[in-house]
Amino acid sequence: MNHVESAGSADSPDSRDAAGGGGSIQRGPVGRLVSAVGSGVVQLFLVIVAIFWLVPSFGLLIASFRPESDNSTSGWWTALTKPAQLTLENYQNLLQNGAITHSFLNTVYITVPATLLVIILASLAAYAFAWLDFPGRDWLFILVVGLLVVPIQVALIPVAQLYGTLGIFGTRLSVILFHVAFGLPFAVFLLRNFFAGIPRDLLEAARMDGASEWTIFRKVILPLGLPAIASLGIFQFLWVWNDLLIALVFASSDAAPLTVALQSQVRQFGANIDLLSSGAFLSLIVPLIVFFSFQRYFVQGVMAGSVK
C-alpha cells in the first residue's frame, strides 16, 4: 500500500512540476513573437527595412557633396556612377556663411547647458525621491510624473508673457530655461527608477562609515547610475539639438539655433539645395557622434527600473 501511494505521489502533477520533468511548456504570444524575431527571415526583413530607412540620410550625404548645378539637374544617385562630381566646395561655402556658423554656435550654447542642467537637477531630485524620506515625497513624485502628459503647446503663451515681464524673451537663456523645465519630469522619472534599484545595503554601509548624503550621492549613486545618466543625456541632447518649435517662438534672429537658420533658408532660397543639404547633414552628424559615443550605456539606461 505504501508502495502504491509512493508511486502515485511520484507520478503526481506536483512532483512532476517540482522536478521540472513535466510536459512541454505552452508558450504564450510574447514567447512565440520572440522566437519569430530571432528567425533568419525576420532578421533579413529588418535589415531591408533599416536600409530603406537610411536611404534618405545617405541621399542627403551625397547631395551635400554635389555642386548646385548637378543637384538641380539630376538626382543624387547619379553620383554613384559619376563620383567625380563630388566636391567639398559646399562645406567650404557653408563654413564661410556667417549666419549658418553663428546659428551653429547658438545651437551649441543652447544644447550643452540645457542638457547639463537637466542631468544635474534631475540626478539630485531622483536621489531624494528614491532614498530620502521627507513629508509628501510620494505625492510630489506623482505630481512630477503627471507633468509628463502636459503638452508643450499649452505653455507657450503663458511662458512667453512671463519671459516678456522678466525681460529675457528672445534670448538664448529663455530657450534654455524652457527646455530645462520641460525636460525635468521625464529625467526625474527615469533616474528615480534606476536609483531605486540600487541595493540599499550599499547606502547603509556608506552611512555606517560616516558618509554624508552628499558623499553617498557623489561616490555611490552617480557611478552606479552612469548608464541611466548617459542615456538621459542622449535623450535630452537630441531633443534640444533638433528642436525647432521652441526656438521659433522664444529665440530672436540673433539667438536662433541651426534648425531655425535652415528653416529660413528653405523659405528664402528653396532652390539652394547645396547649402541646405550640407547644413542639414552638419546638424545631423553632431547628434550621431553623441549617440555613438554613449550608445553602450543606452540600452541599460532605457531599461532602468523595468525589471525589479
Rank of each mutant, 00 (worst) to 15 (best):
S252W: 04
G233A: 01
R27E: 02
G279V: 02
T73L: 04
P257S: 08
F178I: 00
S6Q: 12
A211T: 13
R32K: 05
A304W: 03
L132T: 05
L140Q: 13
L46P: 13
L143W: 15
V150D: 01
V55D: 09
P135T: 05
F235P: 12
D243C: 02
N106I: 00
Q300D: 06
L117S: 13
A126C: 10
A196E: 15
Q43A: 14
G305C: 12
P158V: 01
F195W: 06
I51G: 09
K308D: 10
S72E: 04
G38D: 04
L147I: 01
A99D: 12
G23T: 03
L288G: 15
G210I: 08
L80M: 14
P83D: 04
S293C: 01
V159R: 03
L284C: 12
Y109S: 09
F235R: 03
K82G: 05
L173M: 10
L88H: 03
L262W: 08
A125T: 04
N2Q: 08
R218G: 13
G40H: 10
A251N: 05
A230G: 01
L282Q: 06
W131P: 04
T73P: 07
A36M: 00
A10T: 01
T73Y: 08
P185S: 01
S252P: 14
I120R: 08
Q161V: 00
F195T: 09
V240A: 08
L258D: 06
Q96I: 00
N106S: 04
E5C: 02
A211D: 15
F186T: 02
P56A: 04
V112E: 10
L238R: 04
D17H: 06
S6V: 05
I221E: 12
L258Y: 08
V302K: 13
Q161P: 03
I246Y: 07
L60P: 13
F292R: 03
L275W: 09
D254M: 03
R267D: 12
W239K: 11
S39R: 05
I221V: 15
W53L: 09
N2A: 08
V175M: 07
V37D: 02
S12Q: 03
G38N: 14
K82V: 02
L173D: 10
G21W: 03
S174K: 03
T171W: 07
I216F: 01
A50N: 03
N93Y: 07
I157F: 11
F237A: 04
L61D: 04
I51P: 08
N242S: 09
